[in-house]
Amino acid sequence: MISTTTTADDAPDASTSASDSSSVAAAPRPQVGASGGTDRYLPEHPTPVIECENVDIYYGAFRAVHDVSLVYGRHEITAMIGPSGCGKSTVLRSLNRMNDLIPGARVTGKISYHGQDMYGSGVDPIEVRRRIGMVFQKPNPFPKSIYDNIAYGPRVTGMKVDSMDDLVEEALRAAALWDEVKDKLKQSAYGLSGGQQQRLCIARTIAVRPEVILMDEPCSALDPIATARIEDLMEDLRKDFTIIIVTHNMQQAARVADRTAFFTAQAAEGTGDRTGQLVEFDLTSKIFSNPADRRTEDYISGRFG
């Protein structure tokens, strides 16, 4: 269930449940499995922060995603890759209920955050988004000053802040932007370059201290140098945050992600609508060196997609 939905994984205990794997995390990390895109040793199974179980996502009558089961591990970077229309962004947006903003969007199955059903009654989507932040494909700073962009989140969420100045500095430092903007905090964020704007958006997200940061193709509008900086940043942020990234760029997934989920789109019987589904989920090193599913291998090696 954890590893994949459509293929039998070769991991011996692929059916380990979420509650089991949390006990794995309590123990020191066993040196199982190869490193991901990074030189890190990872446990065979992630400690779940967010967990999808048999998730279907609909837009009106159209089923965009079918039967996704995935575990996003604590302090790990999980990448979701796959061809256009495979539903990876749709899945990402359902993880902090940003899908709610799209009329007609509906989720079935279960998405849980620390065991709580994220779509259960009594769950406040605003609270969900405060704990699970999001960085978008195109940098979308507010048309305010750099300072106000960072301070916005803490202000509107009513965070108790001793010193907003310190918080702004801390967030900008964490996003590796402080040195570039410290002398122009009162200037408009629109004066920054695209890469700086995207780091500002990351800083803005960090400022509300979420546990998870979702990134929807955060580098697709950036040049390679800006992309490299964001990737370095993600590496640093993993110490404090859990990161889930959707990317079109397979090299990026290979470079930054600890685990990678490969999605594809399949035409549904009868209607011909293309529905996204999870093909394979495993350590990044395994996905890119020895994928279990033929479709993954074809995609990775460029034969399809």
């Binding site: 903003l101 978008f136 979308n140 700073p141």
Partner: peptide, 16 residues
């Protein structure tokens, strides 16, 4: 994109 940026930070609709 601006509305979504605000909502993703945990702002409610009125504040956004």
């Amino acid at each position: 994109a601006l509305r979504h940026g605000s909502m993703a930070l945990g702002a409610n609709k009125m504040r956004t």
